[in-house]
Design a protein around this nucleic acid. Structure first.
Lengths: 110, 110
DNA sequence: AAATATACCTAATTTTCTTAGGCATAAGTA
DNA sequence: TACTTATGCCTAAGAAAATTAGGTATATTT
């Protein structure tokens, strides 16, 4: 299991990257998808995820649509136009971050 | 400049990794060294660094020694035995984290 | 003489997370 | 049938750690 502390700061990037690939997703789906592709290593907690989704919606990065599925209601999120711009910035920022971490942590490879 | 938000959660790892390589360092030296090896991309803020150093000392990961240099006092930090064990754990955790992030963010490469 | 660099620190505020729930429907199991 | 697990949304209290914005002092450079 990935140390949740390391994940701090990366949650927004994860969310908008996934939404850039799949058009729309609902919250629970995001948690399951992340769990699947990381073989269970990354488990987003709902207490962190939902407030983060709400914040991104408040900032105009995401828009939502409620949809009935059977007797349940799902809240689908998708990127706004502003959100699509954000993806590019955040991905660049994440790549730069990882490169810097590798410079700091693997000095032998430099 | 690296988005400071992405750095959240990685500060402890950076500190103890640097100390595992250089035996002892003082706070200001850590900020400068990180800035140097990342070509100015990562700039640790003192408001984050010093409290982090104090927390790590409080947990018994680091020990300190005050030393006079000219008319100034520097506070040198080094890893305790427990700290040396921690380095291994944290580095493994960081590698796992980066791998997971790459799974999430670069699905094409998988 | 003034500005920058070195070197330590803290306190108020903000941000975000963890923890620990609550509510409800659907599906699987004993 | 009853219970548990999965699905699916949410929030609130508290904790953790960052940002911001200082303070103090010596040393060096302009």
């Amino acid at each position: 299991m990935i140390d949740p502390k390391l994940l701090r700061g990366s949650l927004n990037t994860i969310i908008i990257k996934l939404l850039s690939e799949r058009n729309e997703m609902y919250g629970y789906e995001i948690t399951q998808h992340v769990k699947d592709i990381t073989a269970g290593e990354v488990q987003l907690t709902e207490g962190a995820l939902y407030p983060a989704l709400h914040r991104l919606e408040g900032k105009g990065i995401l828009s939502t649509e409620l949809r009935n599925v059977g007797n349940r209601v799902r809240k689908y999120y998708r990127l706004t136009e502003a959100g699509k711009t954000e993806v590019v910035h955040q991905m660049t920022a994440m790549e730069d971050f990882i490169k810097s971490m590798q410079l700091i942590l693997n000095p032998k490879l430099v």
